[in-house]
């Protein structure tokens, strides 16, 4: 499975995968490179440039940036993966169900989807964030609520054409059961789109959290979060430009990694 995946991956997808692996490794083990954890304030080393003890320097409270960056990237990964898993499972199962089980289910789900689509995703997330400020769980819920619709729409459309295809009709006539039809016909048809949606969805989830942090309504300090760090470090851009650059580069690399991984060869 892994081998065949690697074989079919394009050059861009391999680059994206590698980039994400490196970021993930940093997120998991980056704390080990720091002398202290991300909350420890070394008041003797405020805004210190990168050095042997502080690889990425220290921020305005003298906190180690290596540790804080690792924390922030780990948080981003966690949110991204949680959102993708939740929204894809819900979206795919409801999408297949709607396309395969007759008009009533489809109609009911479509009404629901139309309601969700009436508001831009970020506005929905912002409203949720307003209700429970600074909550990771609510953020996760809100983003998943917005994102499953994407899976639902794509999966529903692809499943519809698959269900109507001669190939599936033929298997059905030969007596194959529902699970077989899903395994051989529907899943192979939707899997590539689901994968692409998942990678792009992961990037969007990470972006959304950073956006909220950036307008100061997302995660709250002293938590390390990429968007929040940008706002916090912006005042020091002339004294310590590397500090502001770090979260900027991190978020760009995360998004780039997921976008590269998800793009099919054209």
């Amino acid at each position: 499975m892994m081998v065949s995946l690697l074989k079919h991956a394009t050059f861009g997808q391999k680059c994206g995968g590698l980039l994400l692996l490196v970021l993930l490794a940093f997120a998991l083990f980056g704390n080990g490179l720091a002398p202290n954890d991300g909350a420890y304030q070394d008041l003797d080393a405020i805004l210190a440039p990168p050095s042997e003890t502080h690889w990425l320097g220290t921020d305005h409270f003298g906190r180690s940036m290596v540790a804080r960056m690792a924390d922030a990237i780990r948080l981003s990964f966690m949110l991204g993966v949680l959102c993708v898993v939740t929204s894809s499972i819900i979206g795919v199962s409801l999408g297949v169900w709607a396309a395969w089980s007759g008009k009533k289910v489809d109609a009911v789900l479509n009404v629901f989807v139309n309601i969700l689509l009436a508001l831009p995703g970020l506005v929905i997330v912002l409203l949720f964030a307003a209700i429970v400020p600074g909550s990771f769980f609510v953020l996760y819920l809100a983003i998943s609520l917005v994102q499953w619709v994407e899976y639902f729409r794509v999966v529903r459309a692809v499943t519809k054409t698959t269900v109507d295809s001669p190939a599936m009709q033929s298997s059905q006539m030969m007596g194959f059961g529902r699970w077989y039809l899903f395994k051989r016909h529907i899943w192979p048809a939707i899997a590539p789109s689901v994968f692409t949606l998942a990678t792009f969805g992961c990037a969007t989830a990470i972006l959304t959290m950073a956006s909220l942090g950036f307008v100061y309504v997302g995660m709250q300090p002293p938590l390390a979060e990429l968007g929040l760090m940008m706002v916090e470090l912006f005042p020091y851009y002339s004294d310590a430009p590397w500090l502001l650059a770090e979260p900027l580069i991190a978020i760009a690399l995360l998004v780039l990694g997921f976008h590269l991984l998800g793009r099919k060869s054209s």
């Binding site: 001669p166 190939a167 051989r184």
Partner: peptide, 8 residues
């Protein structure tokens, strides 16, 4: 070709 799945 449209009457078969290309997945296997």
């Amino acid at each position: 070709p449209s009457a078969f799945t290309g997945s296997v």
